[in-house]
Simulated scan of single mutants.
Amino acid sequence: MRVEDFFGVDVDLDEVLRWKEQGADIETILLGLRNMGCSMVACMSVFDASGLMPLSKAKIVVHNSRTWRDQYPENTAFQEDLGDILDRMDDDDRDVK
């Protein structure tokens, strides 16, 4: 049993792997994690930590999943805002030189 804390939710990574071995698809696993209280970011981290998939792939899979579809507009807007902030920070860094 490998229990880790993912943003305040204890998840047994071995149990997540058992779900997969028992035939659960990604959506079923995501729904189980969400029902446990995991956020989108926590789900991505669980997938990476358990070895189901690397973080870069987990981000795409979770963001575009049916399980998190209700959060898609808010998360897309957040990512766009974050991108704008990072772009401005990069521009500010160039202005300093």
Results as ranks from 00 to 15, higher is better:
20 K>D: 04
20 K>Y: 14
21 E>N: 09
21 E>D: 07
21 E>W: 08
21 E>H: 08
23 G>C: 08
23 G>E: 04
25 D>S: 03
25 D>L: 04
26 I>F: 08
29 I>S: 01
29 I>H: 03
29 I>W: 01
30 L>N: 02
32 G>I: 02
35 N>Q: 14
36 M>C: 03
36 M>Y: 06
36 M>A: 15
37 G>L: 05
37 G>P: 04
38 C>I: 02
38 C>E: 02
38 C>F: 05
38 C>Q: 01
40 M>D: 03
42 A>H: 07
42 A>M: 05
43 C>N: 08
43 C>V: 04
45 S>Y: 06
46 V>M: 05
47 F>L: 12
48 D>V: 02
48 D>F: 09
49 A>T: 09
49 A>D: 12
51 G>C: 11
51 G>Q: 11
51 G>D: 10
51 G>E: 11
54 P>W: 11
56 S>Q: 10
56 S>W: 10
58 A>N: 03
58 A>L: 09
58 A>D: 04
59 K>I: 14
59 K>S: 11
59 K>Q: 11
60 I>T: 14
60 I>K: 15
60 I>C: 11
60 I>E: 15
62 V>M: 09
62 V>Q: 02
65 S>A: 09
65 S>I: 06
66 R>C: 05
68 W>H: 12
68 W>F: 15
69 R>A: 14
69 R>Y: 11
69 R>D: 13
71 Q>K: 13
72 Y>M: 08
73 P>Q: 13
74 E>P: 00
74 E>T: 03
74 E>S: 12
77 A>L: 15
78 F>V: 00
79 Q>G: 01
80 E>I: 10
81 D>Y: 07
81 D>Q: 12
82 L>S: 08
